[in-house]
Design a protein around this nucleic acid. Structure first.
Lengths: 249, 249
DNA sequence: CGTGCATTTGACCACCTTCAATAAAGGTGG
DNA sequence: CCACCTTTATTGAAGGTGGTCAAATGCACG
């Protein structure tokens, strides 16, 4: 699975709690400069933040931060895929979201992280001290406003997910999930989607079991709405019909 | 049901689209001054916003704004209870949240409202022009920051609700719901909670049917965890056990 | 080629839904 | 104030969607 992710060059990875971190060298080629909170910053402001940030590389399936832990850092994703989740005492898990390059996480409003974040693929992060960034919201008002916009957009996506979890059938859930992924990766221009996450991640995201997810994949395939060349690669064959299913038509 | 809501004096109500609106007379006794976005404002800033706001009274079970409609206004709740919801094409509904005095809604990030808002009880609102308030985020940075804090807290509550909708059983859902209401109304100091919303509202909030909600109320009663003197009044008899159930223990 | 993990498929079951009937509460008019 | 009607809530019985348990298949890697 990891070897299929071509977006990362061959580099040495390090757990971000180890001391092999390097100071953020340059934001020039960082995607966050264009789409994330950093996009509102002037050159000098960007350098300022880069000076207090660190570049982190983490291999797949590692924890980045844990629900309840003191929230010291804010993370911008430069490459890879991250899942954030919450758990019940007995181990039942709900995945809150999958995050891709340009997105950030860790902006807790209490002292502790409200969710656990883990890498799905090998991931490159920009790690910023949370308290310092929050201070910057005052110094650079447009940064705070940008974060408000991002947070509010995130809130609306989460509310859409509430509708999905509370009221959609298994089939509708999976169709919605696939269409949302298409939206995110439409830059690839074709209708083939790579799923970096495994079936149990999809299940815990949609409030289902892996068996039900698998069965629904099979059903959508048999109806010629999608094609599964590999369990990680989905080709959308009939976007319109999938859309109708996803919206409960 | 309406007559039981003693928080409102006997006044004439008007739909907010009619012309019987009155300019916001004074913020002196408004709860929003203490707990909402308005709490960060100086006297003159508050007056400034009051000058462009209107005081609205709406009777129970009326629409305030509709999903998709152009988002012209932002609303602060002064008294009463409001539900916000989203619908699928075939009528399936998910209630996103119940809002109480001091809370606000309507801060859409696109042009249209992302949800429908309706009064549950008779409600008094402070209606502010959305575009003007958003402009004020720049003029008064601490206002923008306060709204960011509120929005982020709201995001975390919504994520908790995702865990509930995706992974909790009917019994756990209802226990969680009751405990959350207790938290909100603990100012009443006893463990008797008034439920302004009907069973179908609770069902659509928890991703259940009214029958299942009703059955779970009965079960919790028979286990002596709660007492239902009236379908709208719940007394918590065993908070600890309810807590264990709610958290999936 | 064997081991280990992820995914798929099958059989059975349970929780919640659906459908239906009854009970209780609220509102209106006499 | 009570009869009547409507709305809401409760309870019961039957059914279905998705869950649980189990086995088989597929794939990567040594």
């Amino acid at each position: 699975m990891i070897s299929k992710n071509k977006s990362l060059p061959v580099i040495e990875y390090a757990n971000h709690t180890s001391n092999s971190e390097v100071c953020y060298p340059s934001c020039d080629q960082c995607i966050a400069k264009y789409v994330s909170m950093c996009s509102v910053l002037e050159e000098n402001e960007l350098n300022d933040i880069a000076g207090i940030s660190k570049n982190i590389r983490i291999i797949a399936k590692q924890q980045i931060c844990v629900e309840g832990e003191t929230a010291e850092y804010l993370f911008n994703i430069k490459s890879g895929c991250v899942r954030i989740s919450k758990m019940l005492a007995d181990g039942r898990r709900q995945i809150i979201g999958f995050l891709f390059p340009g997105e950030f996480f860790g902006l807790a409003c209490s002292n502790g992280y409200s969710y656990t974040a883990e890498t799905i693929t090998d991931t490159e992060l920009c790690r910023m001290p949370r308290a310092d960034i929050i201070k910057k919201f005052s110094d650079i008002p447009k940064l705070g406003q940008k974060v408000l916009n991002i947070t509010h957009a995130e809130l609306q996506r989460t509310q859409d997910q509430m509708l999905l979890l509370g009221r959609k059938s298994a089939k509708e859930k999976l169709a919605t999930f696939l269409l949302n992924l298409i939206d995110k990766s439409m830059r690839d221009h074709n209708k083939k989607v790579y799923l970096p996450m495994c079936r149990s991640d999809i299940a815990d995201y949609l409030g289902l079991t892996i068996e039900t997810v698998s069965r629904q994949f099979t059903i959508l395939s048999k109806e010629n709405l999608i094609s599964l060349s590999d369990s990680q690669f989905v080709e959308i064959l009939n976007l319109d019909k999938l859309d109708i299913i996803a919206s409960g038509g």
